[in-house]
């Protein structure tokens, strides 16, 4: 269970990007976070594994408080959170297998990492997962030889290699064509229930969000203003989430304050 309490993030001395945000995610449900650009979706996701340092608040994953961890403790804790990126973030010049195994880098010692002598269990699991998402025959290909959809599958397998307790996906389909995008979304949904894994997805495509998730969180300018089942997301709510532009909104809030 991931429990976020009163999370605030402020870059420099400006207005906070996240304003005292509360969110709890549990079970194997898929939670989609929607909201216009600049609403703080990406910052929220990166605060969870502290790729972005939260200003204040608490992030608790299955009993571990993340915000107070020291560098080395944080490294160990990050293994428990898988992350999938919009730009896939693969290492182009390495093979698919090396990319997939890089998800295990937190676990294996430096020498086997350097010489690419991965543990048998890891290799077996890599083949199983690659087989499951349909990229096993690419194991020896270089990552930059693959298409966008295939590359994102490598990204998903890399994250799953960590045996994570939760999966974060930062706009995983935004760089893909509509058909591939749906394939990746249904893959994420199926994997979530197969592996009993909670998944949080930042997403711009509301139709996909409604179709593939169990819960939708609507963010607007650093706050959660909608949190319910996809069916409850009506036109009125949509308008509220996507109304105006953040800059105007900021000015309005500033004037009111």
């Amino acid at each position: 269970m991931l429990k976020i309490t009163n999370l605030t993030k402020r870059y420099g001395s400006g207005d906070p990007v996240l304003k005292g945000l509360d969110l709890t995610v549990e079970g194997d449900q898929i939670t989609s976070v929607i909201g216009s650009s600049g609403a703080g979706k990406s910052t929220l996701l990166r605060c969870i594994n502290r790729l972005v340092e939260p200003t204040s608040g608490s992030i608790n994953l299955n009993g571990t408080e993340f915000t107070t961890l020291k560098r080395s403790e944080l490294r160990a804790a990050r293994r428990r959170i898988g992350m999938v990126f919009q730009g896939f973030n693969l290492i182009d010049r390495l093979t698919v297998m090396e990319n997939v195994q890089s998800g295990r880098l937190g676990y294996i010692p430096p020498w086997p990492a350097l010489t690419r002598r991965y543990p048998k269990d890891d290799i077996r699991r890599a083949y199983e997962l690659m087989e499951r998402v349909g990229i096993a025959h690419y194991a020896d290909k270089r990552a930059d030889e693959l298409s966008g959809g295939e590359r994102q599958r490598v990204g998903v397998v890399r994250a799953l290699m960590q045996r994570p307790e939760i999966l974060l996906a930062d706009e995983p389909t935004a760089s893909l064509d509509p058909k591939t995008s749906e394939q990746i979304m249904s893959l994420l949904r199926d994997l979530a229930s197969e592996l009993k894994l909670p998944v949080i997805i930042n997403i711009h495509n509301v139709t996909e969000a409604k179709e593939y998730s169990d819960r939708i969180v609507g963010m607007r300018y650093g706050r959660i203003i909608f949190d319910d089942k996809p069916a409850q997301l009506t036109k009125t709510e949509m308008d509220e989430i996507y109304a105006g532009v953040p800059a105007q909104d900021r000015a309005a809030v500033g004037a009111a304050a």
């Binding site: 182009d92 010049r93 880098l105």
Partner: peptide, 26 residues
């Protein structure tokens, strides 16, 4: 970006250099 991905995996500094920086500089 690959550096960010490996940080998120919990890889140490040395392994990030090995996997994300060395291949790009090769």
């Amino acid at each position: 970006k690959p550096v960010e991905a490996l940080e998120a995996c919990g890889a140490s500094r040395f392994k990030i250099v090995l996997y994300a920086i060395v291949p790009q500089v090769m």
